[in-house]
Design a protein around this nucleic acid. Structure first.
Lengths: 343, 343
DNA sequence: ATATTGAATGCAAACGTTTGAAAAAATTTC
DNA sequence: GAAATTTTTTCAAACGTTTGCATTCAATAT
């Protein structure tokens, strides 16, 4: 029945035999508009379901009120927590979030950024893809910075870029986790590392290594194996660890998923946790508190990171020309549960 | 150094002392443009990092290439899987996804929809919030339909709306789950139900009830308790179940999270799974295969739902005026694992 | 030399809205 | 009743791009 074309200000103007300006002003409660005119126009507008075309406004004001969020995946707890944090702060301010998933692909990341810039997105939150990281590409980021579009790194970052970033203190979190295992008395601590090259992986790895060094524990290369952050990817490496002539008596997983995978393998082998083998994860994902035994882990405040990143963005937006990028590093916190509490 | 204002076609035209039309044509490889002119303009454009302003194009063509996804939450596996499915199909076609999280709030849902319409979003994928559902509000949906903006329901839906929808066959999935428990020999099957009123909860509940009826099993009200879809919300209800004078010998959880919560409580009580108590979840989330024991569950093809929903959207978009809404119901599939395999 | 062709470019309108300045209309003042 | 004032409305430009049509200019054909 109704034409599918949305009602415009011009349509209303025609109906009232007045100019579009009058309609615009009436709808915006401009004082210099006759009270009756205003009322009539507003009523009619409501009746026909008029809705401001924000696209034209974006063009006029050069403000789109939309932000880009570019992440490698959204199937992990942490990523969605970050997005929720961004949402919490920015949605009430009228911003719309354009979520782009790169699937760890450089090309998709590049295209996403280009698209966001074309759409005149006002800011971009980025966690770089693995491919990008590996290859060390960065030209696609240059163009973002050249446009002076605020670029905020979340989670994965390029260290030598002059932008704001909000990350979690992975290093000290990992350090604390391993220190805890040592304090309990575990001697042969393995590490199921994340993919090489990523800051997250490397920082946690560094925390692991440096902690071992501090306590004069031997560093065994054969106790360090790579995973891909997900449960499945932990299965084989853990099996290999447990089949070693001198197997580890504890495993520090790069995240909870990996630790849970390891937990499964250990149990299948008939090992008791934490008596025979200690386990620690990273993330404090909701499930970690309810595994059996519950998983000792390192809390990683995803929501908070999202909220801090929002703050950094707003700072940069409202800041004067001589803007200085900020780096926020939120502390991570050891959460001790059953999987490491050997008495 | 560089002005922050993006380079426009006009800027380039001024530089070459030609008209904007020429620049536009040159950039778009229009045949009626001199080869040299074209080359020069394209080179210069690249050099200064010209990037088409898609906002102006959206206004001109009345096409925004952006779609809205309105969901109650993104912290569950299923939701993110759906979004990934949408992404998989629609991102390559040039669409941008605007994700709006309603946090189960009617007001946020209403505002999100209104915003999406104002932004001339070309289609909306909606899973209605719990509040909306409870209150039975629907006017905010009317305006979407009146605008003839394709509206696709995913997951949670209003049954009496003339729109396309893609859902999973919750009823038969639940039925199969309970039937499986019965076939194994479990006699007192409890159900940790989802929030009342939601289609998802009710369909699974119905599957549970009807299956019990079919096999002439008694339906015990005291074995049916509500949860809120997340792990924590299963803890207390499960405790209550297990403290009953006549406790259940199996629990069917409305989803994996809930089942995992129940698993934890059962183990804390020293019960053996599946010998003392059988457990079945719903979703087939990645973690469910790696709990100990692994969780019998019902596979819910989130990615596929997203992809089907995309298809429905595209159908409606390309369809003729007399468009007939489609309902896709994907089958769910029982995945038998250890938590229910009592021999 | 003139007409004809063809290639290359420019003009102007359009998308929907806002806004400063100008114009018109209504009201007040003397 | 005219001038001054106030209220209300319209005009025109702007945001950046595309595109049908008109125009320009040079080259070719007659």
């Amino acid at each position: 029945m109704n034409s599918s074309r949305p009602v415009t200000i011009k349509d209303i103007a025609r109906r009232f035999r007045c100019s579009p300006s009058t309609v615009s002003r009436a709808l915006n409660d401009h004082p210099a508009i006759n009270e009756d005119t205003r009322k009539n126009i507003q009523e009619y507008a409501k009746e026909v379901g008029y809705q401001r075309n924000e696209v034209s406004l974006s063009l006029l004001n050069k403000k789109t009120a939309s932000l880009g969020v570019v992440v490698p995946t959204i199937s992990n707890y942490y990523e969605t927590a970050v997005i929720e944090g961004l949402h919490t702060v920015l949605q009430p301010m009228g911003y719309t979030l354009n979520i782009c998933v790169t699937n760890e692909s450089y090309l998709l990341e590049k295209e996403s950024l280009s698209k966001l810039l074309s759409n005149r997105t006002e800011g971009i939150f980025l966690s770089v893809s693995q491919e990008t990281y590996d290859a060390g590409y960065y030209e696609h980021l240059e163009s973002v910075i050249q446009r002076k579009t605020p670029l905020i790194f979340i989670d994965r970052e390029y260290e030598d870029f002059e932008t704001s970033r909000a990350t979690v203190d992975d290093y000290h979190g990992a350090f604390a986790a391993v220190e805890h295992l040592i304090s309990i008395g575990y001697k042969q601590i393995a590490h199921l590392k994340g993919p090489n090259g990523l800051t997250v992986s490397e920082q946690r790895f560094k925390g692991y290594i440096n902690c071992l060094k501090k306590y004069n524990m031997p560093i065994r290369e054969d106790l360090i194996l790579n995973t891909n952050f997900n449960v499945e990817s932990a299965i084989l490496p853990t099996k290999r660890l447990l089949e070693l002539a001198s197997p580890p008596d504890a495993i520090f997983g790069v995240n909870d998923q990996v630790a849970i995978g390891a937990m499964r393998v250990a149990k299948d082998k008939g090992l008791r946790i934490p008596q025979d083998i200690g386990l620690v994860g990273f993330d404090n994902s909701p499930i970690s508190a309810y595994t059996f035994p519950s998983l000792t882990t390192v809390h990683r405040p995803g929501r908070k990171i999202g909220m801090e990143a929002s703050r950094l963005f707003l700072n940069q937006l409202n800041g004067s020309g001589d803007f200085a990028p900020e780096s926020i590093v939120l502390p991570s916190e050891l959460v001790i549960r059953e999987s490491s509490l050997r008495i």
